[in-house]
Design a protein around this nucleic acid. Sequence first.
DNA 1: CGGAATCCTCTTCGATACTG
DNA 2: CAGTATCGAAGAGGATTCCG
Lengths: 229, 229
Amino acid sequence: MSRREYNQYCAAARALDVLGERWTLLLIRELLIGPRRYTDLLKALPGIGTNLLANRLKGLEAAGVVQRSELPPPAASSVYELTERGSELEESIVALARWGLPLLEERRPNDAWEPEWSILAMRATFRPEAAKGVHEEYEFEVGGKVFFAAVNDGDVSTGPGAAKSPAVTLRADIETFLAVANGSMPMQAAIESGRYVVDGDEAAFERCLRIFSLPERIRPKLYSKSCPT
Amino acid sequence: MSRREYNQYCAAARALDVLGERWTLLLIRELLIGPRRYTDLLKALPGIGTNLLANRLKGLEAAGVVQRSELPPPAASSVYELTERGSELEESIVALARWGLPLLEERRPNDAWEPEWSILAMRATFRPEAAKGVHEEYEFEVGGKVFFAAVNDGDVSTGPGAAKSPAVTLRADIETFLAVANGSMPMQAAIESGRYVVDGDEAAFERCLRIFSLPERIRPKLYSKSCPT
DNA sequence: CGGAATCCTCTTCGATACTG
DNA sequence: CAGTATCGAAGAGGATTCCG
């Protein structure tokens, strides 16, 4: 019952033997954000089908990429999480995401979106050259979910939860957050409409925007769609 | 007739909508080495099946990742090559390959291997910290195929063909080259057996080995297999 | 011979239903 | 909540044929 393999003595092919099936890399993306229960994963991956999820988890567990762990008694439930080896996939997934950014354009009617996905997206849009000498944290609250980005010179770490001491806090509803993020709504307009709220140091806010801006080449596409003149 | 898509407003998911099908990333790996004719691709991807290859190429062409171009009259034939956008996948594929290196272990009986694959493999095993201050080229000839690596401080470029002015030239048959590369045969033994020939500056040779060595953590696995004592 | 289109079988996917 | 069982639909893989 061996999984289909490529039979090539090539590191990329061997990686794809483990990761190349449908859903697998998205499942790992989900676990990169943090440990998740089975049903959380089902919800975060609409369309996966419960048998496939179970198969993938089993395969990844056998491959040493994922492990189960039991939560302590009060919350008697088990979660899936990445092993250390699994966490090393972050680099690959962020690289893929970076390549995929120009494909994002506007959100389509059936597109799912979870605020947590920003946590990885920000690592993909992070521009080290704009972050030289910057040491500060930003906090976000989108659709009720809180996450942070901690910039440290040319480096960034992001995650769920609050920042320790944010220089700025940004709050928005999902639609407004996405419209600003993908460039189809100017930040200025969003703030004036009251649907985007910024608290904290103004200069830090400007830095935050520069550090996590989308690559320039995809902005024109977006603007030309939403502002056809 | 729409391809299966994930319907997630997420850069990684969008990238996988284009790249996630079976064979696609390996096909791109092949084109990263250089332009290829249809039949070259069939040979380099054993098992793909001609209809799948045609489908994948069509899909990637539609996605702007691959383009066809006609060679000038003498060699009246057409080749497939990556567009600029397609070439930007190098980072993602090298990241995947780097993650897959520990899975390589020994070559299995049915594993295909092409000398050209070293061209990408060397970008995956390249260790920038070992290449600080180094500016020189290495040339390789394996199974009759020639390729080079040009190290430039913390940077490397690799490709098919001869180096301009190699500091060292390494020559070996396929089996010996692989055995040394994956650590199951000591370089010393290979040279002494006469199946591995090194020409040029001795110090440069040592640097070359350090710069492109496999990560330490996978070496013990290999040695314990081949030297069970 | 290079570059596919067609046909046929087998596997995998995806959705729903069902179970501890 | 966390999966297993089932089954039609889509995709993969191999062989063969077709066209220039």
